[in-house]
């Protein structure tokens, strides 16, 4: 299975540099068309397993939708969503034997095709005729996240952008009505940002694998164990 190393992966010391993975016919065709019609608007373009990920300039975002629909024959909109690259809050302990909570890295790293900052919007479109798909990524300004809306080209973008707005706080210019989709009207905050805490976990952390209840016939062991675990 061909594997491409993301830009942030550590360089392997013992393995020789791998040859770039062989591209499929579809991937080559997509890359060629992207280069032809978008050209400079594409900052970075990476084949990812069987798809292509293209990071584009923010002001080219509406043009990307047109190019995808007309020149790439991508008539099917899969989704539009966002991603917050800030490090995840601390859940588990790195050195403990309790493995029931994930321990995420504490430094900010970016994924495939990189990113200019914390926020990105990514969208996936597919072609029902040619059976290929492309993921487009675009960087958003952290202080004032704005990006153009895809509703004029793909009417299905309506709900995806509304969801993105209430989950992340991104504003889509040109959207007919960016009102909340999922959350009640008086909800405060943007849940999918990494700095939005899950209060239930803050109030009482997940106990994990630790078995705090002793067996019924061991009252003293229960007392000492509950002391040790608190």
């Amino acid at each position: 299975m061909p594997d491409e190393t993301p830009p942030d992966a550590p360089v392997a010391e013992t393995e020789p540099a791998e040859a770039p993975p062989a591209l499929s016919v579809k991937q080559e065709a997509v890359l060629a068309r992207l280069a032809e019609h978008l050209g400079d608007a594409v900052i970075e373009c990476v084949p990812l397993f069987t798809d292509v990920v293209a990071r584009v300039q923010p002001d080219a975002w509406p043009r990307v939708a047109d190019v995808a629909k007309e020149h790439l024959d991508c008539d099917y909109l899969s989704f539009i969503s966002g991603i917050d690259w800030a490090p995840a809050p601390k859940e588990g302990d790195e050195g403990s034997s309790d493995t029931s909570s994930p321990v995420q890295p504490t430094e900010m790293t970016f994924g495939v095709a990189g990113s200019a900052g914390r926020f990105q919007v990514f969208a996936h479109v597919q072609s029902t005729q040619r059976h290929w798909g492309v993921t487009f990524k675009v960087d958003l300004d952290e202080a004032d996240p704005h990006i153009a809306s895809w509703v004029p080209v793909y009417p299905g973008a309506d709900w995806h952008e509304r969801e993105c707005r209430e989950m992340f706080g991104f504003v889509f210019d040109g959207h007919p009505s960016l009102r909340p989709l999922y959350l009640p009207a008086d909800f405060e905050g943007h849940p999918l940002r990494k700095d939005f805490p899950l209060l239930a976990r803050v109030v009482k952390p997940w106990p994990g694998l630790v078995d705090v209840e002793a067996m019924p016939s061991e009252p003293e062991a229960a007392a000492s164990e509950s002391e040790a675990s608190t």
Binding site: I83, P102, Q104, T109
Partner: peptide, 10 residues
Amino acid sequence: KGATGPFRVK
């Protein structure tokens, strides 16, 4: 990001 849990799942 290489951890025991995903970083983001869309």
